[in-house]
Every structure is written in C-alpha cells, then in structure tokens.
Simulated scan of single mutants.
Amino acid sequence: MSSPEVLAHRGFAGIYPENTIGAATDAAAYEETTMIEIDVQPASCGTPVVFHDDRLDNTRDGQPVTDGSGLVWETSLEELAETRVLGTEESVPTLSAFLEALPETVGVNVELKNPGRSDLRFAESLAESDRKEQRAHWAPFVERVVTDCDAFSGEILFSSFYEGALAAARNIAPDYSAAVLLADSVKTGLEIARRYDCEAIHPPRNQVRGTELASEPYGSIPADEPDIDLLEIAHDEGRAVNVWTVDTWVQFTQLAEVGVDGIIVDYPGLGQSARPQE
C-alpha cells in the first residue's frame, strides 16, 4: 500500500483556525505535512488575501467564520487585519504575509478561489469562445498572486474549480504546477486537465473508484459509483491525483489502498495507519 502525501486543508482546519498564519505555522511543524492547502481572493484594493468564503459573516458549524461582515473583495486590508477568525486572535492574512511565515520545506497549494467578482463559471468546461473572456476576468488577480508566490522559496501548486483561473495561471506563470478541482463531473475535469496539461487532478473523495467512499454522498455530490476510472486515466496520462477532503483514518486508508498520490485532510495523523509495513 502506498503512503500518499498529506495536504493540510486550510492548515488542518479540523483543529486550527482555517487559513490563518497560526494554523499554517502549526501545520507546517508536522513531519507528515507535504503541503498546506489555502484559498485566495482579493481585498478591496486587489491585494491577495487568504480566505475561503465570499463573505466574512458565513458560518462553520453554526459559528461565524469571523467577527466581520460583507464580501471579502469589498473589504479593506485595514478592516481584514482587525477581523478575528473563528473566535481566535488570528486575522485574515495577506498571501504575502502568509507565505513569508512558512518554511521552504513545506509546499503550498494555492486555490484560486475568486478574482473579486461573481460572474464566474464554476466547474465548467468552457467553449473556446468563452475562454478568453473568463481568462481576462482572472488575469489581474492571478498576476498579483503570482508576484507574491515568486517571493516564496518552497513548492507552489495552483488549483481551481474555474477554467478561467487555470487559463490565466498557465498564461501568466507556466512554470508553476497546476491542478483542476473537480465537482460533479469527472469527464469535465479530465477535459480541463488535458487542455492546460495540468500536473494534477483534485477530485472529491467519492469520485475515486474502488472504495466504499465512492458509493457515499459527499456534499452536493450524489452517491453514485463513478463510470470513469479517474485514477487509472490520470496515472496513464502522468497526472497526480490528490483527493479532497478526508476526515478519518478509515477514509484515508481506503484511498491509500487504491493508490492515490495525495490526500487533503482536516486533521493530522490520519495517515499513520496507512503507512507501508516495514
């Protein structure tokens, strides 16, 4: 059985305040952590910040994500610096400050979450006539993200659910690795991965065949064994498969047994039972 790489989801969001510098530095201290997965979008001035939701006043398990309110991309850097995340003293960091706090020994999976607008095309394979427009929507923000990432000495992997984001990333920074995030269609994900020659594909945990997870619903993705063997096809094409998001060691072990390359997890230590026997 393989031992997949561990990607700390938002900095092990199961035990640390997600997407904060404190979470990242704590997550980086675990020997198992290969990469830290984060989400980026702009503040009102266009500066990339690390935050997942569009709104500051969304909730996690009934608790407000922050003590702020409103759309992130309509909020100033000064306000974000004073905003507290999940009842802690951690604030919403800039991408630059976030990367500066990390050692080069840990990589960062930068999910391009939003360029500061709502007219985007989520998890769609775009017609050729639409690709230029969507790439243009993303390009100014992606340029600023790339500038921040260029100052980081560790590994960077860009990922997104949006074809426009991947198109902009490939155009602006072709030397960085890229991954397409899948939603409800394996076929769509493979099309986009091939179009931009993505180094990796990031499917949800129930889109990998050969596990019990494939017959369980996950979020809005129904319980239905995938018709397409994504893992086999991706590996035949030379692409890594990093699965999101795993909460238990049982889930981790199932995915490790079928040979996925990486697993995005909320908690540290899930892979201990999946390590190969000596």
Score class of each variant (00 low, 15 high):
147 T>I: 07
216 E>R: 15
43 A>G: 00
247 D>N: 14
277 Q>I: 11
71 L>I: 10
236 D>T: 10
74 E>V: 04
73 W>G: 12
139 A>D: 07
273 S>V: 15
247 D>K: 13
252 F>R: 08
32 E>M: 07
135 R>G: 06
181 L>T: 12
59 T>A: 11
106 V>I: 09
33 T>S: 09
211 T>Q: 06
93 P>K: 12
170 R>D: 14
268 P>G: 08
270 L>H: 07
53 D>A: 09
121 R>V: 06
226 P>I: 04
127 A>H: 14
204 P>E: 05
169 A>T: 07
138 W>H: 01
184 D>G: 06
41 Q>L: 15
204 P>K: 07
232 E>Y: 06
270 L>N: 07
26 D>M: 14
13 A>W: 00
42 P>K: 01
175 D>A: 14
101 A>G: 02
29 A>N: 13
142 V>C: 04
255 L>R: 08
2 S>R: 15
258 V>Y: 13
179 A>E: 06
210 G>W: 06
11 G>P: 09
58 N>W: 11
191 E>L: 10
8 A>V: 02
227 D>H: 08
24 A>H: 01
102 L>I: 03
66 T>S: 14
129 S>W: 05
198 C>V: 02
58 N>I: 03
263 I>G: 01
186 V>M: 04
158 F>D: 08
206 N>Y: 02
47 T>A: 14
106 V>F: 05
121 R>E: 14
6 V>A: 08
3 S>T: 06
38 I>C: 02
241 V>I: 06
10 R>Q: 07
118 S>C: 09
94 T>Y: 09
194 R>V: 03
263 I>K: 00
70 G>W: 13
107 G>K: 05
273 S>K: 15
240 A>E: 15
141 F>Y: 04
239 R>W: 04
9 H>I: 00
21 I>E: 00
135 R>P: 00
4 P>H: 06
68 G>V: 08
97 A>K: 10
239 R>N: 04
83 T>L: 05
127 A>D: 15
168 A>N: 12
140 P>I: 01
268 P>T: 11
193 A>S: 14
45 C>E: 15
85 V>L: 00
213 L>N: 04
147 T>N: 09
84 R>W: 02
161 F>W: 11
45 C>K: 02
159 S>T: 14
156 I>D: 05
169 A>L: 08
232 E>Q: 15
143 E>S: 10
182 L>I: 13
189 G>I: 01
266 D>L: 00
27 A>Q: 05
136 A>R: 12
276 P>W: 10
130 D>M: 12
112 L>V: 05
145 V>C: 03
214 A>C: 13
208 V>F: 05
103 P>H: 05
48 P>L: 08
269 G>C: 08
11 G>T: 10
242 N>Y: 11
216 E>A: 13
138 W>K: 01
89 E>Q: 14
197 D>R: 12
124 E>Y: 08
133 E>R: 14
147 T>L: 12
137 H>F: 14
